[in-house]
């Protein structure tokens, strides 16, 4: 089965793309940094959770 996964190629120019991990040579995930990022984004995640809650509530009242 041919899927897009068979079509990877290396980036032609990696200069200045040190932060990019979207290729086959991805750096190992720095979980410590990811954890800090999630914690730092709490306000945003709370806003989204509330928005989802409102959405769910709205749908349940429709039924």
């Amino acid at each position: 089965m041919n899927t897009y996964r068979d079509n990877y190629e290396t980036l032609p120019d990696a200069e200045g793309l040190g932060h990019v991990t979207m290729n086959n040579d991805s750096e190992a995930i720095d979980y410590k940094a990811r954890i800090a990022h999630v914690q730092a984004s709490q306000d945003y995640l709370t806003a989204r959770a509330k928005r989802m809650a409102a959405r769910v509530a709205q749908r349940s009242t429709e039924e």
Partner: peptide, 16 residues
């Protein structure tokens, strides 16, 4: 990481 994400979700819904 998953614990952090789960806690962030719970915190986001603490008023729910």
């Amino acid at each position: 990481f998953l614990v952090t994400c789960g806690q962030a979700a719970a915190k986001g819904l603490e008023d729910h």
